[in-house]
Simulated scan of single mutants.
Amino acid sequence: MASLLRVRPRHCDAQAMVHAIRYYEFFEDAMLDWLDERGGYGRLREAGADLVIKASGCEHHAPARLDQVLTVETRPARVGTTSITMTFTLRHEDELVAVGTLVYVCVRDGGPVPLPAMLTAPA
């Protein structure tokens, strides 16, 4: 699944490059787009579940700059019983910008629970 986003001034530092912390916002937005394809975050919450981030990381390959349109490819890298590891690949045109990995744990009432079918079923 791919999302498009334009780099806005609020994403950038004084050199008009995306600040490192902003990539995590891009990953989160792409994750919400991925969830939308499966019924949405609201559907997950209606099922009594939520996702919390257990681990995150980002490898930076090239700077993203003001007004560029980035493509964010989102895919599950690993689906466990109570967690899902997502990979986010950001590109500007054909140039690799960054690769992020986030591990989400499905929780209910403060404890881990099995992933609902909407997260494990193919899109």
Rank of each mutant, 00 (worst) to 15 (best):
A47M: 15
H11F: 09
V99A: 01
G110S: 08
L115P: 06
A62Y: 02
H60A: 02
V7I: 13
A14W: 08
C58M: 14
L115N: 06
V69T: 12
D67G: 01
H60Y: 15
G57H: 04
D36A: 15
R108Q: 14
R6Y: 06
D109K: 12
E73N: 10
L4G: 08
P76K: 03
D13R: 05
G39Q: 07
H19F: 15
M1I: 02
S3N: 04
A123N: 03
D94I: 03
P63I: 10
S83Q: 11
T120E: 04
E93A: 13
F26K: 12
A62L: 03
L115A: 06
G110Q: 06
D67H: 13
D109W: 07
V97K: 11
I21Q: 12
V97G: 05
A2P: 00
V97A: 05
A77C: 02
C12G: 05
P112W: 00
R45N: 12
E95P: 00
V107W: 01
V7Q: 02
E95S: 11
R22F: 06
P116H: 05
V69P: 01
G40P: 06
P114A: 10
V52D: 01
G80Q: 02
A14M: 10
V105K: 01
A98N: 07
E25N: 10
M17I: 10
L4Q: 15
R78P: 00
L4S: 13
Q15V: 00
A77S: 14
T82A: 09
H11A: 04
V105L: 04
R6T: 14
G100D: 06
L119A: 04
V105F: 00
G57M: 02
A121K: 13
R6Q: 14
L70A: 02
A16I: 00
I21K: 05
E46H: 14
I21D: 14
E93G: 01
A64G: 14
P9M: 05
L51Y: 09
M17G: 01
G40A: 06
M1G: 15
H61L: 04
